[in-house]
């Protein structure tokens, strides 16, 4: 039977470093991606993610499972990201973001040289459309104010419940509801071309909830 995150952390506390390795493997992707979407720079995101895991490890001696492990870990990550953004150390020009986004697409694809476009026209067209869509979504998320962005990232990609997100952000649940509403409202406006197209495709009128798990 798989051990829970809390149990893994308690095992780390009692000196079992292999449990920390399991936590690292499980959360490396979510933490790096959360930070990447917060600070908008892949290199900076990895640096901050290292710091998150190191702080988790350093705090093992004082770890008390009063909340979910992910709440605690993402609180560390959020604080680091907000501090980094405030310090302005990880602000980079748009061009560097574009370069890093290409290099970290996650699907193994890299930027196609311009000369190959003529040979692979249909594939590249589809690819460009997909890339344009992804770029539009990325810019829409990045344009959200920092706290709204963190709320959406934890809500959408970590699928945390409201209590958890409120603890991570250090706000009340009612403040969080308002924060999420403002964030999704801004995204709805910015992503209008994609949203309307999606609605035309699925005119079934089902009362679908945002989260399938709820």
């Amino acid at each position: 039977m798989a051990r829970s995150d809390v149990q893994l952390m308690l095992d780390v506390k009692s000196g079992d470093d292999s449990s920390f390795e399991l936590l690292l493997r499980k959360y490396r992707m979510p933490v790096v991606n959360f930070l990447y979407r917060m600070v908008r720079d892949a290199g900076a995101a990895e640096d901050l993610a290292q710091e998150v895991f190191l702080r988790v490890y350093r705090a093992r001696g004082q770890y008390v499972p009063t909340a979910k492990f992910t709440t605690w870990m993402f609180r560390i990550a959020t604080n680091l990201a907000l501090n980094a953004l405030r310090d302005g150390r990880h602000r980079h020009m748009e061009i560097s973001i574009d370069q890093s986004a290409g290099g970290y697409s996650g699907d193994g694809e890299t930027e196609q040289p311009a000369m190959e476009i003529a040979d692979r026209q249909p594939t590249i067209e589809v690819d460009l459309i997909q890339r344009d869509r992804a770029d539009l979504i990325r810019r829409a998320v990045e344009s959200l104010p920092e706290k709204q962005r963190a709320a959406v990232l934890l809500h959408k990609y970590q699928e945390m419940d409201y209590d958890q997100i409120a603890r991570v952000l250090g706000c009340s649940e009612s403040a969080l509801k308002s924060l999420l509403f403002r964030a999704y409202e801004a995204l709805r406006v910015q992503l209008a071309p994609l949203v309307q197209a999606a609605q035309v495709q699925s005119q079934s009128g089902r009362a679908v909830k945002m989260r399938s798990s709820i």
Partner: peptide, 9 residues
């Protein structure tokens, strides 16, 4: 639509 946001490895 937010599902289409590419993830980093």
């Amino acid at each position: 639509v937010l599902d289409e946001l590419p993830a980093l490895e």
